[in-house]
Nucleic acid binder design. Structure first.
Lengths: 353, 353
DNA sequence: CTGTTAGCGCGTTCAA
DNA sequence: TTGAACGCGCTAACAG
């Protein structure tokens, strides 16, 4: 069923049908009604591809995430998509997994579909991808990356704010040996999280033992391995902060296996605040990085680029703050007297050698 | 950058460029090489929309799920998408949420994009949606629904198999009062799960008290509410089976709040076996419904319809079996002597009034 | 306010 | 084996 067909049946020109569909106000209401009636009757749906071809705009945004299987991302996809239906954009989703060839594939797909913008939310270093996209003149949104290119926009994420709260919270509870389980180093976000942790530890004079810095990969399995290693240490930590919530869940799971009770024997702090965090047993204390806010900013940045192509707004228009969410996976360090919390004020002094 | 442009620069006709790109073997290798070189140089990407328009096939499959935020679905999306890249199909994702207007929207989007098929994995009753799609001649895949229409294919899911195992497992552990927390009744899958539970209870002569049948909505919050209600009962259950894992997680979470230890005080069984289930504390015993298998079958059915349009293979080509996965959220009923498990053979008798 | 017409970028005949 | 030409379904000029 095509425009032509509708035009013929409604006894008008194709132009009139087109105008009617696009709700151009200069159409005679009588004709419009006639056209709509035919459209209803025959069940006509305009062909997006033809529209895109002639208009030069696809009304599609690309969204690239590393994987959908990590609970951090569905929330983002959801929000991004919702905004899509609100503003009449389709979203073309791509995953990277660990496969580099998929990256090329994703880029090709996006370009061939002539997307009006791409949000790259992989938290890695996707310079190559960005280059290809920009060369094709497609607006890009990316996390934490400054670029002179007007086609690329970005947000800054303030990891330190939340992590500082976490570290100080643990210190206040009397924890002196605090471990950190990191993620895959090839992720920009991971090195930033780790750096923030180290910085915050230094700030308050807490010692950092290399043994307490474990490399993970942001999976639950990694969390399990990590806590096993940590528990085997002669001088084991009383608290562990994880580079993401999945890792923290793994830690909790394996702690159960090791008969370590959380938070009595071990305090655990996650990162991200995925929705699941509050449903863990015990509920997970974690640093919130709002997935909704991120998706929202990404979408609006793209919308901006798409609707006002000449808009030269610089990157880092916004910054996203992270914040500690206190729940019940942290407690006083073992061996500490369970006194009033005003004791926490002595932590700093007592933490020094 | 267009085909024409490439043709001009390579000093060949557009037809030759087209043939080269589509790897039609009758092209002179010399010319082909020349064309490829130009394509590389200028960074040319063919326009999918133009291709679709002229070829009449979009190489896009639609995938409709209720929401991506429920961990059951990302796994499906992942598998489906992976198959997509393997077979060179794009996937157009849609969520329904609870909004009915989104359903119309999803259908419209799919049709306007001229998708080559749609997998509807919402587990509800989407007859209206299917009708619209079929009327537009788009092949459809749907769960558990027989249809004479050759355009719609389907799988059957055998819920009873796994649920029977679950019920019998609990019975064998000496549980006499087994509760069931259900999901939203508007989901076909939910009524089937519940029916299977009731049937299996009857089979072995276990009593079913209406008080022990709780209505939920497949969220963690619902699980929490449910167990609170159950725990307040004068004669409370010693085991609860949930219509999905999310509900079970909620149950476990709230049991913690109520100081009910799992599985000592309460046995919990989930349904779906989302990946998270094994990482719960304690690891959740659940009935597996393979998300990968489902996605795989859906994709292949669509592929079949798309590549061999005249293929008249009936629905229910396959059936997916469900299976109990034993983990550690179930144990002997409280008050039961912890004897050898051969005692379970008496359950049946003792369960009768 | 409406109709005619020229492409948008590509695949695919049909001749050569 | 290659090229010229047509048309996929639609929007946007322009003319009426």
């Amino acid at each position: 069923m095509t425009l032509q067909e509708i035009a013929k049946r409604a006894k008008v020109s194709t132009a009139t049908v087109s105008r009617t569909i696009n709700r151009i106000p200069t159409v005679d209401p009588v004709l419009a009604r006639r056209v709509w009636r035919v459209i209803e009757q025959v069940g006509y749906y305009p062909n997006s591809h033809a529209r895109t071809l002639v208009s030069g705009r696809s009304r599609i945004f690309g969204l690239i995430v590393p994987e959908i299987t990590n609970p951090f991302f569905p929330e983002i996809v959801q929000t991004f998509t919702e905004l899509g239906v609100k503003y009449q954009y389709e979203v073309l989703l791509s995953f990277l997994a660990q496969d580099t060839s998929l990256l090329e594939n994703a880029a090709r797909q996006m370009i061939e579909r002539r997307v009006d913008g791409v949000a790259i939310l992989t938290f890695g270093r996707e310079d190559a991808l960005i280059d290809v996209l920009v060369r094709q003149n497609v607006p890009v949104f990316v996390v934490d990356m400054e670029s002179p290119e007007p086609l690329v926009k970005s947000v800054h994420i303030d990891y330190e704010h939340g992590i500082r709260q976490a570290v100080q919270h643990l210190a206040a509870l009397g924890h002196l040996r605090i471990a950190f389980v990191s993620g895959p180093e090839h992720l920009k976000t991971v090195v930033q999280r780790k750096a923030a942790f180290l910085e915050c530890m230094r700030e308050i004079g807490l010692p950092i033992s290399p043994q307490l810095l474990i490399d993970g990969d942001h999976t639950m399995a990694a969390g399990m391995t990590a806590i096993s290693a940590l528990a085997a240490l002669p001088d084991r930590p009383s608290a562990v902060v994880c580079s993401n919530d999945l890792t923290a869940i793994g830690v909790m799971r394996q702690a159960f296996e090791l008969a370590l009770e959380i938070p009595r024997d071990l305090s655990v702090v996650g990162f991200d605040d995925i929705r699941l965090a509050q449903f863990m047993v015990p509920p997970l204390t974690t640093v919130q990085l709002s997935q909704i806010e991120l998706a929202d900013i990404a979408f609006r940045a793209l919308l901006d680029s798409a609707e006002a192509p000449c808009n030269r707004s610089s990157c880092y228009e916004y910054t996203i703050k992270t914040n500690l969410v206190l729940r019940r996976s942290t407690a006083l360090a073992p061996g500490r007297l369970r006194q009033s919390s005003c004791e926490s004020q002595n932590i700093r002094a007592s933490a020094r050698p």
